[in-house]
Simulated assay, not measured.
Amino acid sequence: MSSGKVWIVGAGPGAPDLMTLRALRAVETAEVLVWTDSLVNPQIAALAPEGCERLRTSTLTLEELMAVIIDRARAGRKVVRLHDGDTALYSALNEQLCRLVDAGIAVEVVPGLSAYQATAASLSSELTIPGLVQTIVISRAGGRTGVPERESLANLASLGASLCLYLSARHVEEVQAELLRHYPADTPVAIGYRVSWPDQWLSVVPLSSMAAVSQERQLIRTTLYIVSPALAAPGEARSKLYSASHHHLFRGGAT
């Protein structure tokens, strides 16, 4: 293994068997494992080999974290930075990449399954139904971090698409009120808490009950909402791709 390289790895939503093979191989050969212990299943961190240095990040600032990663990488050790979910979503990937590039350290990014995908699979649901909804929007409530005005919840909800909201449980009352301006009150909402973990809780409720159910369950973190008409799709909805009348490169249409 060449020196001066860091692997930033998406661990998936929680269950070890939902990791990608590439992510698993990275963890199993790590010499230094830097992991988000507040969000990543400890069973995944336990897959690192005996003798691997393990560093939990829940009490560290980004500066403290990056100082250790850069030090270990420069020493020629294989450093695996393990994130929950997928590295492309709410992972602080960009801030870490900038510091590693500035330090002259090569980086390999390994994607992971996201919670919205695991939630849809647990419900045996497709979020893009022909003639009903063909767009998936992934976002979050503003909160302390905020979102650009053009990405306000009002603008996103006006699409009527399958809307996946992360990091929003603390603001669920305001979220529900805004969504009710754009979706019918009986629109199904999947509420997923720690999806794919042993203590997973997952339920589909009407949009009008979204806040009340969240508050009853005392959900404030590690919660995902999927608001979508697709969760109540009619049984006759059919993809044109597999229709006998649909021509494409590999199959002629009906004559």
Rank of each mutant, 00 (worst) to 15 (best):
W197G: 03
H246E: 14
V133A: 14
G160A: 12
A73F: 05
E178S: 06
C164V: 15
A48T: 07
I44Y: 06
L65N: 11
R150S: 09
G143N: 06
V189R: 01
R25F: 11
K5H: 10
R238E: 00
D186I: 04
W197I: 02
V40I: 07
S139L: 00
W201N: 06
S91N: 01
S124W: 05
L153A: 02
A254R: 14
S239F: 12
L113F: 02
H246A: 14
L207W: 02
S196K: 07
Q134I: 14
R22E: 14
L113E: 02
E149K: 12
S228L: 08
A106I: 08
H246L: 14
A237Q: 05
A230F: 06
G85D: 01
A211F: 02
L113G: 05
E108V: 09
P188H: 01
S243A: 15
V172Y: 10
R144I: 08
L97E: 01
L167E: 03
K240Y: 15
Y166C: 03
V175R: 00
A141G: 13
R217Y: 01
A190K: 05
G104M: 12
A30S: 13
Y90P: 00
A232D: 13
L156H: 07
D84T: 10
L224Y: 01
V213K: 03
G143V: 04
D186V: 07
L60H: 15
R150D: 08
E126K: 13
G131M: 03
S209H: 06
Q200F: 01
Q215M: 12
V101N: 15
A141P: 11
L165R: 03
E178W: 04
T145H: 05
L165D: 03
